[in-house]
């Protein structure tokens, strides 16, 4: 009796686990089957460069959205690493300090924080401060444009309420705790011998921590950076109120499109062609995320 119960119980666990994983496979397969046929239908390779279709078009693409996603993800990742790495080092290397407990608690909360609040936070910061900052930025932009040419104005200038930099800032805030947590666990796993050797040869403390010890954990930290980048490349909620979305190639100082934002918008329209383009965009986005993810896995 106990033997049979054992078999039945274990089989039940396995079936439930299988059921839990099944939808995830189905999502990936569904996105790729519908997405690839949509891409072929909407223009093949030019799907990557064209602007999104209006309801009356039968061709279109994700060009401006791809540019916006890559630009904001890159800026967000750079800023996220610049701030997240020292934060992670502090939590990992100085974990015995009293204050490090608070810091670690804060990071742990922030990593699970609803991402929509980050978007609203950045929106509020920008709506409060743009009036004062814009004259300054316009001055800088004009000065640079007179030296380097007009193209500078696509990147620097008076910002509107929704712009690529707000989006990048929101993505960076989401990236910081990811990088910090992975960095912290990597630094915490350094053996005491290595640590003492590093302090002995490095001279200044910051050289020991940031240069010598970093070499010991560089693989783990790089993997953390890539995983965080994969995460922010697919974020939608924080971009809703910061980048807002755009379907044209526009200066980054204006509302900027992103692939997740287009999926969110186009999926809710009643037009077949836009829904198809949402699936195509989803396939592109999933490819980007999967590529970064597997790059991170191979590094480990």
């Amino acid at each position: 009796m106990r033997k049979q119960l054992n078999t039945v119980g274990l089989a039940l666990f396995a079936v439930l686990a299988f059921l839990a994983v099944l939808p995830l496979f189905h999502i990936i397969i569904d996105v790729y089957t519908k997405g690839i046929s949509a891409i072929v239908e909407l223009g093949g390779l030019s799907f990557l460069f064209d602007i999104p279709p209006t309801p009356y078009d039968n061709k279109g693409g994700v060009g401006p959205l791809l540019v916006g996603t890559l630009y904001m993800t890159f800026l967000g990742a750079v800023l996220g690493v610049l701030l997240g790495f020292p934060l992670g080092v502090y939590i990992g290397e100085f974990r015995k300090e009293f204050f490090a407990n608070f810091s670690r608690g804060g990071v742990n909360i922030l990593v699970e924080f609803p991402t929509i609040t980050v978007g609203l936070f950045v929106y509020a910061l920008f709506s409060i401060s743009l009036v004062d900052i814009n004259p300054m930025l316009e001055g800088i932009s004009n000065a640079l444009a007179s030296v380097a040419g007009g193209w500078v104005k696509h990147f620097i200038g008076g910002l509107s309420q929704f712009n690529a930099y707000a989006g990048a800032l929101a993505l960076a805030i989401i990236m910081i705790p990811y990088v910090a947590l992975f960095t912290a666990s990597a630094y915490a796993s350094i053996e005491q011998n290595t640590r003492e050797a590093a302090y002995a040869i490095a001279g200044r403390e910051y050289r020991a921590v940031f240069i010598v010890l970093r070499k010991a954990v560089s693989r783990a930290v790089l993997a953390a950076v890539l995983l965080g980048t994969a995460k922010i490349a697919g974020e939608t909620a924080p971009l809703l109120f910061t980048a807002f979305g755009n379907v044209y190639y526009a200066p980054f100082t204006e509302a900027t499109g992103a692939i997740p934002l287009w999926i969110w918008y186009a999926a809710q329209t009643p037009y077949e062609v836009q829904i198809a383009s949402a699936y195509g965009a989803a396939a592109v986005l999933l490819t980007i995320v999967l590529a970064i993810f597997f790059a991170a896995r191979l590094r480990q």
Binding site: P23, H26, D30, L227, G234, L285, L286
Partner: peptide
Amino acid sequence: ASLVDLIAAMPTVIFGLWGLFVL
């Protein structure tokens, strides 16, 4: 285990797309 990690990195909007048209 890395499959589970992958789901953590999947864009949520893709879950939404699947929920809207399939689930």
